[in-house]
């Protein structure tokens, strides 16, 4: 097989995989609309995906906000427009960095765990066991993860927005000596509800991507412990990639 063929078959495989992931998502969506939903399971996943990701999301967001303030201050100082740092920090966090960074972190943390757990269940026949007990594995395993992802990603993003803006404020006001009142006015004047809401919509889509991709990879694990490892890596790589790709289209669509 020459390199051209290899690229071709890789691309076909990739597209095929995306198609299967979409189908899995639609199925999960269908099942999520059929009551009863296992509330206990959803809660458990919300804790797994959401609550446990809070510390790492906060740390990432606060340092991102601080770096943003530091970097943009250097530029704006040359125009005597230091107060615009607030605008830049707020806009880039709410529209872009908040949802994307949260998505990537959750993909690495919760997505990997999800794929590993489901992968293990697949290779030890636990998923088959579910089917034999007249319980649909998609409904029992994927739906709670999907719903939890859809709900928790936006909430984590809100945290990330808020703490990031706070970090930027701290650096700009306490370290770089920007007028705090003007800084906050520049932040609130140019920030609009649609910026925040658009960012949250993005996060919702990222939540869907992470949950669906990780579950897909876990569900399709083959070949024992090694397969579980592969599934885990694959889940993180693919969901991170899809987050970044879809981010472009979401940005073009929403804003």
């Amino acid at each position: 097989m020459n390199w051209l063929e290899r690229i071709g078959s890789k691309t076909t495989k990739f597209i095929e995989e995306i198609g299967r992931i979409c189908l899995l998502f639609l199925q999960a969506l269908k099942w999520s609309l059929r009551p009863p939903l296992g509330f206990r399971n959803i809660l458990k996943q919300m804790e797994e995906i959401g609550v446990r990701s809070v510390p790492v999301v906060l740390i990432t967001a606060v340092s991102t906000g601080m770096v943003l303030a530091l970097q943009s201050h250097t530029g704006f100082k040359r125009f005597n427009a230091e107060s615009l740092v607030g605008t830049v920090v707020a806009l880039s966090l709410t529209r872009e960095l908040g949802p994307v960074l949260t998505g990537l972190i959750v993909a690495g943390r919760a997505g990997a765990a999800m794929a590993a757990e489901l992968g293990t269940m697949r290779v030890t026949e636990q998923i088959d066991a579910l089917s034999t007990m007249a319980t649909n594995p998609i409904k029992y395993l994927i739906v709670p993860r999907l719903l939890a992802g859809m709900l928790m990603l936006p909430i984590l993003t809100i945290f990330s927005d808020a703490i990031g803006i706070a970090g930027g404020y701290f650096v700009a006001v306490k370290v770089l000596d920007v007028n705090p009142v003007v800084y906050m006015r520049r932040t609130t004047d140019f920030l609009e509800f649609d910026d925040i809401f658009g960012g949250l919509l993005k996060a919702l889509v990222f939540g869907i991507i992470i949950a669906t991709v990780s579950c897909y990879k876990g569900f399709n694990t083959e070949g024992g412990a090694e397969g579980v490892g592969k599934a885990t890596t694959g889940a993180v790589v693919l969901s991170s990639m899809l987050i970044l790709i879809s981010d472009y289209f979401l940005t073009a669509m929403l804003f």
């Binding site: 293990t120 030890t124 026949e125 636990q126 066991a129 007990m133 007249a134």
Partner: peptide, 28 residues
């Protein structure tokens, strides 16, 4: 509906790791 007539014992038992023994037995 038909599967409710079945019971299956898997090779590795396929017990759910995240549930306790009684929760496994009482899963259905």
């Amino acid at each position: 509906e038909l599967r409710k007539k079945f019971g299956m014992l898997f090779q590795g038992a396929a017990l759910f790791d995240s549930l306790s023994v009684w929760e496994n037995v009482g899963f259905s």
